[in-house]
């Protein structure tokens, strides 16, 4: 297991020959509240060579459990969200897969990442052997309403993972604008 820092990458398939199936886990703790509390939603975007979402069918989240090509499947349903990626099924036109979480833009006080602690993303084999892990230790999250945890990306014929921890103050709308997602 390797711990990454923001911006670092790991050569998944080079260091693990034969790896064709990974499970990406995203987790966090939120400070409990009696009132309306921030609800984080894990979200996956499959991007083309220009860094834009291939289509809305290439998004994976709790209300769209499987990508159009069946390569990415959302299997998490709790604090430990998990996304299953079958690397060999990912279409050639997908150059990277973004893993993020946004605070649901609920009108009755949507909150921010300020109430989030111990956020992390990890990549494991399908047998749950952890390959890399990125623990986010980002401060000043009061204005952050969406966060890109990391990305899987192609490097020639291989797959790499990069830890990011990139926050957005514009929430899902900002992410949608950057990645060309049609809301």
């Amino acid at each position: 297991m390797a711990a990454l820092v923001a911006g670092a990458n790991a050569a998944l398939t080079v260091e693990n020959p034969g790896l064709d199936h990974v499970v990406v886990g995203m987790g966090w703790d939120t400070i409990p509240s009696n009132g309306p509390q921030a609800e984080l939603v894990p979200f996956v975007v499959m991007c083309d060579g220009d860094g834009k979402a291939v289509s809305n069918d290439h998004l994976v989240f709790f209300n769209q459990l499987v990508s159009a090509d069946s390569s990415v499947t959302f299997i998490g349903d709790g604090d430990q969200e998990q996304i299953d990626v079958q690397l060999k099924l990912v279409p050639e036109d997908v150059s990277k897969i973004i893993f993020l979480a946004y605070v649901d833009p609920e009108l009755r006080g949507h909150g921010s990442f300020a109430s989030v602690r111990s956020a992390h993303i990890r990549v494991a084999t399908d047998e749950n052997r952890e390959l890399v892990r990125f623990n986010m230790s980002v401060l000043k999250l009061e204005s952050v309403t969406a966060m890109i945890f990391g990305e899987l990306y192609r490097h020639r014929t291989d797959w790499k993972f990069r830890a990011l921890g990139q926050g957005y103050s514009t929430g899902l709308a900002g992410v949608a604008k950057d990645y060309g997602i049609s809301l």
């Binding site: 499970v23 769209q64 499987v66 069946s70 299997i75 399908d126 749950n128």
Partner: peptide
Amino acid sequence: GTTPSSTSARAQRLAARRQKAALE
């Protein structure tokens, strides 16, 4: 340290998710 059935449990969960998505 884990039970031998956890891999198959994961596979079953994955298959169940895919089936649910296909039905939807």
